[in-house]
Amino acid sequence: MTDRCEVRCVHPQAVAAAQQTMPSEDVVAGSAEMFRLLGDPGRLRLLLALRGGELCVCDLAAVTGASESSVSHSLRLLRANRAVRSRREGRNMYYALHDGHIEQLLDMMTAHMGEPRDHFSD
């Protein structure tokens, strides 16, 4: 079975409806960048650890088993892309998920991946 149409036919109304719901190029590019960041298991572990609440770099290194240097580097990337936010308290830097959208994305993704794989008949 091939993943293409056997007969080429375009459905103008369906195409127009899909085009109307398409986000701006900036939103598409930003979303692709966020998924690229989530594609790294180390960065993903950091975000998953932060679902429970705010943690400092030392805590995140202990939770994930990564070096503090690696954690700091990853957090800089995640902060630049609005996945996490930071605050300083004395000599420590604390991180949290940027907002509820990131938490929802993580929750949906882990729920989806935890489901049994369906085998659809073609």
Results as ranks from 00 to 15, higher is better:
residue 12 P to I: 02
residue 85 R to F: 07
residue 38 L to H: 00
residue 65 G to S: 15
residue 39 G to S: 03
residue 107 D to H: 04
residue 102 I to V: 14
residue 115 E to T: 08
residue 30 G to L: 08
residue 17 A to R: 14
residue 47 L to I: 08
residue 10 V to R: 13
residue 16 A to T: 10
residue 78 L to V: 02
residue 105 L to H: 02
residue 114 G to I: 02
residue 57 V to F: 03
residue 10 V to F: 08
residue 86 S to L: 05
residue 19 Q to M: 11
residue 30 G to H: 11
residue 43 R to L: 09
residue 8 R to V: 11
residue 101 H to L: 13
residue 33 E to V: 04
residue 63 V to T: 11
residue 17 A to N: 13
residue 101 H to D: 09
residue 59 D to Q: 12
residue 87 R to M: 07
residue 78 L to D: 04
residue 93 M to L: 15
residue 58 C to P: 11
residue 34 M to Q: 09
residue 58 C to N: 11
residue 96 A to N: 07
residue 3 D to Q: 15
residue 34 M to Y: 00
residue 22 M to W: 10
residue 103 E to W: 01
residue 112 H to I: 13
residue 77 L to V: 08
residue 18 A to P: 01
residue 66 A to S: 13
residue 30 G to S: 07
residue 83 A to L: 12
residue 89 E to I: 11
residue 111 A to M: 14
residue 14 A to M: 12
residue 68 E to G: 09
residue 45 R to S: 09
residue 114 G to W: 03
residue 105 L to A: 09
residue 89 E to P: 00
residue 26 D to M: 12
residue 89 E to V: 12
residue 101 H to M: 09
residue 74 S to G: 06
residue 47 L to H: 03
residue 68 E to W: 01
residue 23 P to L: 00
residue 112 H to F: 12
residue 2 T to H: 15
residue 117 R to M: 11
residue 13 Q to I: 08
residue 76 R to S: 01
residue 46 L to S: 04
residue 14 A to V: 15
residue 111 A to Q: 15
residue 121 S to G: 01
residue 42 G to N: 05
residue 20 Q to L: 13
residue 11 H to G: 04
residue 116 P to T: 08
residue 81 N to D: 14
residue 26 D to G: 06
residue 87 R to T: 12
residue 109 M to E: 10
residue 115 E to K: 07
residue 3 D to I: 12
residue 65 G to F: 11
residue 84 V to N: 01
residue 66 A to M: 13
residue 17 A to Q: 12
residue 33 E to R: 11
residue 27 V to N: 06
residue 94 Y to S: 05
residue 22 M to H: 11
residue 77 L to K: 00
residue 54 E to H: 01
residue 118 D to W: 02
residue 42 G to C: 02
residue 38 L to C: 02
residue 29 A to T: 05
residue 60 L to C: 02
residue 34 M to K: 08
residue 5 C to S: 15
residue 38 L to S: 02
residue 104 Q to N: 14
residue 97 L to Y: 01
residue 86 S to A: 12
residue 77 L to S: 01
residue 43 R to G: 00
residue 73 H to E: 04
residue 29 A to E: 04
residue 75 L to K: 01
residue 28 V to C: 09
residue 114 G to A: 11
residue 12 P to H: 07
